[in-house]
Design a protein around this nucleic acid. Structure first.
Lengths: 109, 109
DNA sequence: CTCTTTGCTACAATTATCGTAGCAATACGC
DNA sequence: GCGTATTGCTACGATAATTGTAGCAAAGAG
């Protein structure tokens, strides 16, 4: 399996502005992108398990996001089967960890 | 001006699951939501200035996101004119600050 | 009053996402 | 071998979100 994701670096809004943060915000601002990273935070998941974890996303979007996140270098399809965070993806995920406690405090405790 | 945003708490995916983080990830995963918060990180901006800062977003989405973020309690329409982060929104924005350095390192520096 | 800015909306067109179904490839038990 | 289950992934039409352009009423400055 393990098809190569498209190699062209396009579609990420802000990538031409020279402001990497804009490209990153655009990429993470696409539906289910944050959620996918979040669900992978602890352990790798198969695409089916990931779909289940993400409240039964349609496989169309899931696959699109997986390709994009893979091209960005945040996740990878490990040889043992299943998607997992790369070293870079793990660093990114660390950034969102404080979000958990914030969310608790936010939505009526 | 300052119309009341819709008062019903709907549309935020995951809000019924009892997992606030899911609702937050869904809200922030909508297009331009992260970007809007980012652009307001330093100082309040008028809706027009915000539109300019966000690469000329269509006012339709901008207004929708502003309403949602306002309902969530992250931003507010200050009396002096212009949108600004609330105390809660400022805390949320702090969480994303490390993202800046990460983005630099990510996209070929 | 005129002129400008602000926050916001209408409308049609485009794009993204959804939901269901299904495929080829691989791996298992038998 | 055979059946069967799982994995990663795609096709397809239907629905929802986003876009782009134009414009509005209200408030302020001159």
């Amino acid at each position: 399996m393990a098809k190569q994701p498209a190699s062209r670096q396009r579609g990420v809004r802000g990538s031409r502005t020279g402001r990497p943060i804009m490209a990153l915000l655009d990429l993470l601002g696409r539906r289910w992108a944050l959620r996918i990273l979040w669900e992978l935070r602890e352990a790798p998941l198969t695409s089916r398990a990931l779909r289940t974890a993400c409240d039964e996303v349609s496989p169309t979007v899931l696959q699109t996001r997986l390709d994009e996140l893979r091209e960005a270098g945040f996740i990878e399809l490990s040889d043992g089967g299943g998607y997992g965070l790369t070293l870079l993806g793990r660093e990114l995920c660390e950034t969102f960890m404080p979000l958990h406690r914030f969310a608790e405090r936010w939505q009526g405790k």
